[in-house]
Every structure is written in C-alpha cells, then in structure tokens.
C-alpha cells in the first residue's frame, strides 16, 4: 500500500504562495482578452508538486470567487481548471513532457475552454442557450488557445527549472 507523507506547514506555505501566484498572474493579465498564465502554471505545478496541485488549485478558485464575486462563471472554475492536472496525471504521470507537448496541451485546453465552461449555461438555460453561448465565443477560444500555446512554448522550460529549484529548497 502506498504511504503518503503528511503535509507540513512548509508545504502549506508554499502551496499558499503558489495559489497567490496564480491569482496575481490571472488578475494582472485580465485586461488582455483570453491571455492567461494559469494553464501553464497548473501544468508546471502538477509536474513539480504532484498532488499538491489540488490544494493550490482550489485555493486559487476560492480566491477568484472572493476577488471577482461569485457568479455563474465561478461554478465552471470548480471543474474546468481541474482538467489540466487530471490530463497531466493521466498522460504523463511522472514523465516531463517536452515544451512543445506542454504547449500543445495548453493550447488545446484554451481552445476548448468555452466548451468546458458552457456546462452551467446548459444547466440553467438548456442545450440551445449553451450552444449559442459557446459558439459566440469561438473566436476568443481560438485566441485563448493560440495565446496558451505561445506562452507555454516560451516559458515552460525556464519556469519548470525555477519551480524545480523551489522544490529542492523545500525538501
């Protein structure tokens, strides 16, 4: 049976720091339409910090709700962002993908973000409303995907090395 190490105070402090980094990156880039670093950070956190990504992610989601106010969009955040760590665990387990593969994953996620986020509209407004809501945003989903791809391709390697160093300091 696999033994899990307990979470230490130091771990929690670092998790809190990484969550706030997600929030700061999201808020500081919110003026640019559909440009974000959250997808890339979540890929990196999953690869470097493993299961801690769930704590980091849900603290971030809670902070987003507190910062922007909880609206219908917030409910989609409860599951949409979780797709990235789940995909990384499923596809790469303990292997590190190349920057190109990470950029492709991030880009594809960006292009599908609107589709994933349409679930609350589906539940509240029905299939037609969700479909119209999703298709109206497709140009922005494509922009989101292209932005994610480019950002991940450029920043994946340097940020990965930085986070590995942070983890080495942690242990």
């Amino acid at each position: 049976m696999k033994q899990y190490r307990p979470i230490t105070t130091k771990n929690l402090v670092i998790d809190g720091f990484l969550s706030s980094l997600l929030l700061i990156s999201q808020v500081s880039l919110s003026w640019l339409p559909n440009m974000e670093l959250v997808s890339l950070f979540l890929i990196l956190y999953t690869l470097v910090f493993g299961r801690h990504v769930w704590i980091i992610l849900y603290v971030f989601v809670l902070l987003e709700g507190l910062f922007w106010g909880i609206g219908i969009w917030w409910f989609s955040y409860l599951y949409v962002w979780a797709i990235i760590p789940a995909a990384i665990f499923l596809l790469y387990n303990k292997n590190c993908p190349s920057p190109f593969s990470a950029a492709l994953l991030s880009g594809t996620f960006g292009m599908l973000f609107g589709l994933f986020s349409s679930l609350p509209t589906l539940l509240t407004g029905g299939l037609y409303a969700a479909f119209v809501w999703w298709t109206a945003g497709i140009p922005f989903d494509i922009l989101h995907g292209m932005g994610n791809f480019t950002i991940s391709l450029i920043l994946f390697k340097p940020l990965y090395q930085l986070l590995i160093r942070l983890k080495q300091h942690q242990s």
Binding site: S101, L104, T108, I142
Partner: peptide
C-alpha cells in the same frame, strides 16, 4: 505525444472553425 498532440490540436481548431 507531440505528434498526437499536434493532430488533436489541429483537429480541434478545424472543428471550431
């Protein structure tokens, strides 16, 4: 994986368009 990822990304983009 880069090949499969590339094919998936292109397929998604084409479908969206």
């Amino acid at each position: 994986s880069p090949f499969l990822g590339g094919c998936t990304a292109i397929a998604v983009l084409a479908l969206l368009l």
